[in-house]
Amino acid sequence: PQPPHSTTLPSHFMKGAIIQLATGELKRVEDLQTQDFVRSAEVSGGLKIDSSTVVDIQESQWPGFVTLHFVVGEQQSKVCLDVPPEHPFFVYGQGWSSCSPSQTAQLFALPCHRLQVGDVCISISLQSIS
């Protein structure tokens, strides 16, 4: 397997970063709510929001990373992701969450909950054409 391609996260997770929703509305990253993602997917076309449930969190084979195991969408597909522990995910009804909220706070000043098995994260996929 290939190692994760980057050890630095983009600055859009930095507290105060300006995010443009698909409606055109601008919000700060820390102010985003579940509905902002849902609404954006609805109006963007071609993208759909999936519910991705965390089923396992393990140490990665790559130093400094964790491996997250998700089951994704209605089909309950299994997907693994190697990410740095400070990587934030948006959990339904809870908001930003990471495996290491303290590191996320240190690097991005973004307040986070601790990501746990059973959390349901927002992810996106391509909308299938019927």
């Binding site: 859009h12 995010i19 443009q20 698909a22 990253v29 985003l32 991705s52 996929s125």
Partner: peptide, 25 residues
């Protein structure tokens, strides 16, 4: 003179992972 600061604006979909299920063979 104060130069206007450019502010980066990021698209919403850059914040959430793209988790495409692997296609069955």
């Amino acid at each position: 003179n104060v130069e206007p600061r450019s502010v980066a604006v990021f698209p919403w979909h850059s914040l959430v992972p793209f988790l495409a299920p692997s296609q069955p063979d």
